[in-house]
Design a binder for these strands. Structure first.
Lengths: 238, 238
DNA sequence: AAGAGTTTGTGAACGCGAGAACAAAATCGT
DNA sequence: ACGATTTTGTTCTCGCGTTCACAAACTCTT
């Protein structure tokens, strides 16, 4: 049995204070942040990894390892100072500064996003709402007015927008994406059910509502099948 | 034949389902399905794994491996029959039957979800919209009327609802979740920024809009830091 | 002050997923 | 009919992420 531990000579490790945090950990930091905020609101000043893990819905060992990538912010025998850790995580994610975002496509979903309070409370300022439909331009949503897509360049420049949200129909997504990238946006959150092609320096995250339902449906179907007949009926030939 | 069962002992948590498809694959099947539908609409009748992979935005080897979990539906030297494969994936996910879902919490987001056409087009019927606010009950949204949360039990029973969508504020999420589970719902799609506790037989998927933005912000910050100064300024003591 | 009790930080084992590479199976051309 | 070509299905290897388990570090009690 060849022990796979032999590949040690690389530069991949943290030999040089590499601030690289694993993707999986980055995705959980906002969850920890929320748990800490909740504890802080309850006037809890110190929490153990076990407490935090419970509040965040994860395993405590995983939480400790995640936090260890940020630095040594806990105290053995005691736990973590809630407010201190909260600040450290916020700083690591980049929430100690404000971010301007634009939302493109002000249909049903765009409306909901524009009114979503969870953005502002975490330092995300909606700089503008954009739509290509002239009939919508000028409408008020919340305390913003819908702008024309043609104003994208100047808006991005004036507000230093780094993040764009796409909430258009699938057919328009790629073109909107291209225009966002051309205007200087380098992170995109895509709600349109389409695969986006972007240059290498641009990050894209995708949220697809119907895909989530389909994944649930798959598991639901399996549960139901298990009840009917335990034997897996061979579905080889059709 | 290729007995896909090579579970080699070990402590497998659920030794039952041998037709178990890896989670990562399940999450991609809806993407393939969409790509196939798109090709079908373009009257393409046959596609190679390379074509499909491009349309779905993945690597072709990964796509082939994913499809191999479903069965042997391709033809070597030729490719895949678009419509046949589409049907097989739809069947595997469980989209050959209709699913009834309820949406709880008809605020901004609930509204958008209720009007989202992507659900109906994939076999998800919105059976009811529910809200605990008496002021909202009775309002029309699309071609449905908002019902009281108190009607949950009868609605779930009458429509055989297996999937519930939570679009309430965080504070109400756990209670709504408990009531959904008590009514018989066994899959939950949670948009509320809260960690839900559920019995083991219930599946929960979480979509958190602000977390997605925070992940983007982290990467955006790293890009920016790289530009300013390569040296990371030590932030050890405070 | 020293031992008992907590809780963190991390090394090591393990399982899963991604991607490269290749053998098997089908079509096509002569 | 048969070799050349295409493309699938699968094997193999590697790296990442999760989890266990434990030494190190801190507090508390006597």
């Amino acid at each position: 049995m060849t022990s796979a531990r032999k590949s040690k000579g690389g530069r991949s490790r943290d030999a040089r204070g590499d601030r690289g945090i694993p993707e999986a950990t980055v995705a959980r930091l906002p969850v920890y942040l929320r748990a800490l905020t909740s504890l802080s609101d309850s006037e809890v000043s110190t929490a153990s990894s076990e407490d935090l893990a419970t509040a965040a819905g994860v395993n405590s060992a995983k939480l400790r390892k995640d936090l260890s990538y940020l630095g040594t912010y806990g105290t053995r025998g005691v736990g973590y100072d809630v407010n201190y850790l909260r600040y450290q995580i916020a700083r690591e994610i980049g929430l100690t500064q404000d971010w301007s975002v634009v939302i493109v496509g002000i249909g049903n979903l765009g409306h909901a996003l524009a009114n979503y309070s969870g953005f502002a409370s975490r330092g995300f300022q909606v700089a503008a709402l954009l739509d290509s439909d002239p009939a919508r331009v000028g409408d008020r949503v919340g305390d913003l007015q819908i702008s024309s897509l043609d104003d994208l360049d100047s808006i991005v420049r004036d507000h230093t927008v780094a993040i764009g949200v796409i909430a258009t129909p699938a057919g328009a997504a790629q073109e909107v994406c291209d225009r966002l990238v051309a205007a200087g946006v380098s992170s995109i959150l895509n709600f349109a059910p389409a695969v986006l092609a972007v240059p290498g320096h641009v990050d894209v995250r995708k949220v697809d509502l119907s895909i989530e339902l389909q994944i649930l449906a798959y598991h639901e179907q399996r549960k139901a099948q298990g009840l009917i007949g335990l034997g897996e009926l061979e579905a080889g030939a059709v």
